[in-house]
Design a protein around this nucleic acid. Sequence first.
DNA 1: GGTGCCGTACCGACTGGCCGGTATGCCACG
DNA 2: CGTGGCATACCGGCCAGTCGGTACGGCACC
Lengths: 196, 196
Amino acid sequence: MKDTSVADDVTRAAVELFATQGYANTSVQQIVERAGVTKGAMYHYFESKDDLLFAIYERMLSLQKSHLDEIIARGGEVDEVLRAVCVDVVETSIEFLPEGTVFFRSQHMLSRPRQQEVVRRRRAYHDEFAALVQRGQDEGVYRSDIPRAVLIANFFSDVHYLSHWYHPEGQEDKTLVAEQLTDLFLTGMRRRDADA
Amino acid sequence: MKDTSVADDVTRAAVELFATQGYANTSVQQIVERAGVTKGAMYHYFESKDDLLFAIYERMLSLQKSHLDEIIARGGEVDEVLRAVCVDVVETSIEFLPEGTVFFRSQHMLSRPRQQEVVRRRRAYHDEFAALVQRGQDEGVYRSDIPRAVLIANFFSDVHYLSHWYHPEGQEDKTLVAEQLTDLFLTGMRRRDADA
DNA sequence: GGTGCCGTACCGACTGGCCGGTATGCCACG
DNA sequence: CGTGGCATACCGGCCAGTCGGTACGGCACC
């Protein structure tokens, strides 16, 4: 990204403030003051406050989607691919914890069309994920006695919830937690011996 | 609750609007119009808009806490008690889905003291829950190789996430989903044969 | 190499509208 | 006749977005 530093500074300030105070409680004035620029500068790079929020989403969505595609492209056993996907999404969600907080809290503050765009992008991710799970079910490694929607929700819920409880304690901690959550998820998914 | 119907109507309208538009995007005017009363009437029963939001939280928190205490008071095997607790909290969360949406989305809009009160109440619930898990670990039925905080987050995340994906499809469906999620959680919790 | 022109980046005072909250009064009922 | 239960008009603050203006770097043309 060779964007001007102004746009970057503003985005950074916005994320921090939105994450701690919420979108509605943060005035544009606060954002530009924290970023060390003026309102005029900000409105030169962003169409609206709404636009600023969307830019934050854009960045996360693109990043996670590209990671997903890359992992899937590498190929391999379903179980290994899914494990890699899960670990990755948890890890990057931890890296972008403030963004995630804003994401899940303020999505409904977006204008209608932009909200739909976000939904569209998330669905794309969701569908690829679901296809993996189905493949695992077809191959008989994952249980089929629980609706796929429930299984998937059971994982994405962990990702959502991270910002509600996770507080970083060291660097490798991030990966550890990602593996633990992934482990819990996959354990629940695997077909039991007793299954039909 | 033998509150006047005005207070009830207002609360109901507020929940619906907050859940669909968010707290900040909903004006007091909208609420009273939907409830079929006037601003004067509303401010006769509530101190502020903030107060209205808190009342919604109050109701949910009290309800779930009383359920929890009751189930624990009944006693029994840890695993059975925990299962009952989990099923109950998922079920009531589904019954109060709009309230839950508001709850998780708009908590940060409360005034500081009230926010702390909510945190306090939730911690009380959390601690009782954690004590159950620990008891299960001490008795050797639950795994101890994953931090208790992670195990617990893994369950509460499901409760939080319900409003993001669940859409009712019949009456018994509610209980079914509650049991499925509980099953997934407890399966992940149980000590494996291979464990130390 | 000066001169004029233009486009890009930025400034910051101002405004129009919205919205939470309040002041005051009315009316029914006991 | 006074008190609880409301209605209605109004106020003051805040805030997103605007708009007239400035600073400056490049670039063409003489």
